[in-house]
Design a protein around this nucleic acid. Structure first.
Lengths: 128, 128
DNA sequence: GCAAAAATTGACTTTTACGTAAAAGTCGTG
DNA sequence: CACGACTTTTACGTAAAAGTCAATTTTTGC
């Protein structure tokens, strides 16, 4: 496990621009350390970027991703806060289950569409 | 099965604004018929709206949703086109499978986060 | 130790997906 | 027929999430 990654290493690995990573830093999603002014990304920053992009692919906004990231962090001291986090996690789960249903339905409609195409192709193959 | 729905009926059913439905029409995603100037939405339009919103929840853009909708349509006559559609469907499937992996990973990280919270709560419960 | 390559900051621009407001047409009810 | 509830078009506005560009550092490879 490397200790630090440069910004361009991560842009290459994840296929995003430096502007994007700096934007995520401005938004408080990641906090790479600095050597002088240069950003140094630790493995934990790299993992955060991975989580951010995963969230993006699932259609979450930056604000939502910020909230989700908060939940991953080490639990704080107070019992009320812990319960609040657990409740928030449950909300996300509901949302993600909805997305899963959406996903399965979309896949199944694509299956149907493909089948229709295949059938149509078969007809053409038979007729000509 | 009703023959027509008004625009507000659909906004209420789906929780979107009239502006949104008109926007989708402008974008060519739906084509409700008209009586005079008033839009009348058929069951097929309603189903399209359902598909559009499903796509949105999965993080697809309007342009992407337009492409997906095209695939659902009745297959055209020509063999080359049919094969192109089948290929495009396969691409979408790859993308959706990625989203499914993202989803499962996110769910599993949320599980871990919750477990950490529950443990912490247990500690507090024991200590106080 | 110096030039080239890489990184930084800041300002401005762009795209997407609608929101919002204005001004007018439509329809059913009392 | 007037009222309210709903609908239409047109047009400008806006928030989110970067992209682009320019002007400086900073870092590096030799």
């Amino acid at each position: 496990m490397r200790e630090y990654y440069t910004i361009t290493e991560l842009t290459r690995e994840f296929g995003v621009s430096t502007r994007t990573l700096r934007f995520y830093e401005d938004e408080g999603l990641i906090q790479p350390v600095r050597r002088g002014r240069t950003r140094l990304f630790r493995p934990s920053d790299r993992h955060l970027v991975r989580q951010i992009l995963r969230g993006k692919r699932l259609g979450f906004s930056i604000a939502e991703i910020r909230e989700i990231i908060k939940m991953y962090r080490e639990p704080p001291g107070e019992a009320g806060q812990l319960k609040a986090i657990i409740a928030a996690i449950e909300e996300r789960r509901v949302e993600l289950r909805q997305k899963r249903r959406d996903l399965e339905e979309t896949l199944s409609e694509l299956d149907q569409a493909e089948e229709a195409c295949v059938e149509r192709l078969a007809e053409l193959g038979v007729n000509t």
